[in-house]
Nucleic acid binder design. Structure first.
Lengths: 231, 231
DNA sequence: GCTTTTCTTAACGGAATCTTAATGCCGGAG
DNA sequence: CTCCGGCATTAAGATTCCGTTAAGAAAAGC
């Protein structure tokens, strides 16, 4: 195995120190950042193999960090938080976290859970080239900053529109079924109608369409779902 | 998404019942076994997508179950145990467990951690995904993206046409009876006429036929059914 | 608290698709 | 040769599916 890079996101210096020391002893390579924005940008630039993430950050909420990173990356995320309410755990896990440790935590257990992540990594096919910027024709998405632009002009998308666009872009060329899109956007719990999805597709298409006489970026597969065309 | 089968390994009937009920409500399909030997054999025979494993079993130690299963399978394992010593957790995780919940545990948290496993599953290469492209003469089907093309040009197929084409392609060379095709496309419940099938075969053939003087891709077996020819 | 944005739901016209029916073709049996 | 069963093909009605608009509800920002 090459090297395993861990990004520690923790504003409490003493805990940050505790974790760093443990990782150093076990010969992991790691980086420290102290707030959410740094976490996202470092994650983008350094492409770590694992995130150790505190939820209580000074700037952004940790949950938001998870959601943002998950728009373009499947990097394992272990949450380390002082909040021990069930609702917090569930929200973090459903937002995309892989594991959740409650402070005070056992360093040995943390290390064991890191090893679990490493072990799973082995079975993954190819370390997919996860880029944080997506480009397709005139469309350009910057997953890290959460923005999209068309022909250089920034698009003003609502959160849901943006999510749908991300989902389609991450699966360019593939046909995504209605139910797949809905469960990915609204979560497994909620049952939203297909009708809502259609409304969003309309407004998305309206915003994506700069000129006529062009092949539409998003194609409808009648009876199945939608598909972004690779231009 | 197909179905997600969970194997519950728990000798305490009350807890087993608690878990079963939660899974049933959330429409998972699951199996119950009550000791380690059954766990291992059922795991082999039924190939579940997830193991919920209690460590305190009457016959074998749970850790041994993990190690045994791990000799041939990477199926996700979530341990649910009364032991809350660090050493127990670490041993279980290092033996191959993916997660560790301590009794008493929150059912909601358990469900969230199951969803985490499911989410990760999506990114893994499934057996069918590996051979997801079918080619035969000028015809090419990409099962993953749900598209088919003829001579490089994409085919516009209706859902039923596409289903029929997939069915035939997955059984190239074989003769499929009318009733087999009908039950596979429309399900055993609906009684659709053979006449409808003929109409679809016509439109399918029309779309598949690029030039004359060629051997037709789909051959009629009078009185029996249809067959895709391997070119 | 008020304004603005975003989300959701309902309604409707139109398009794509499914199904059924009618017609003609072909080969074998009488 | 003629009849008949199985099949292909076409057309047309029925049905489902989609896109769009508008309006009220909810949420976010000020």
């Amino acid at each position: 195995m090459p090297e395993f890079k861990i990004l520690i996101v923790e504003d409490d210096r003493s805990i940050q120190n505790l974790i760093s020391t443990a990782l150093k002893i076990n010969q992991y390579s790691f980086l420290n950042v102290y707030n959410g924005k740094e976490a996202i940008s470092t994650c983008m630039s350094h492409k770590p193999d694992l995130l150790l993430l505190d939820l209580g950050l000074p700037d952004i909420d940790g949950i938001e960090v998870i959601r943002t990173v998950r728009t373009w990356s499947n990097v394992p995320i272990i949450v380390i938080s002082a909040r021990d309410e069930d609702s917090d755990k569930i929200e973090a896990l459903d937002s995309g976290a892989d594991d959740y440790l409650t402070k005070p935590f056992s360093v040995q257990e943390m290390l064991a859970r890191i090893r679990t992540v490493q072990r799973r990594q082995q079975y993954l096919p190819s370390p997919e080239q996860e880029k944080s910027v997506f480009e397709n024709g005139k469309l350009k998405i910057d997953y890290a900053s959460g923005t999209a632009e068309l022909d250089g002009a920034e698009l003003h998308l609502t959160p849901i529109e943006y999510k749908i666009l991300c989902l389609l872009s991450r699966n360019v060329g593939k046909v995504l079924t209605h139910s797949f899109i809905i469960s990915n956007i609204w979560g497994n719990a909620v049952d939203t109608d297909i009708v809502s999805l259609r409304v969003y597709m309309t407004s998305l298409r309206k915003k994506l369409k700069c000129s006529e006489e062009e092949e539409p970026l998003i194609r409808t597969r009648v009876g199945i779902g939608y598909q972004m065309i690779r231009l």
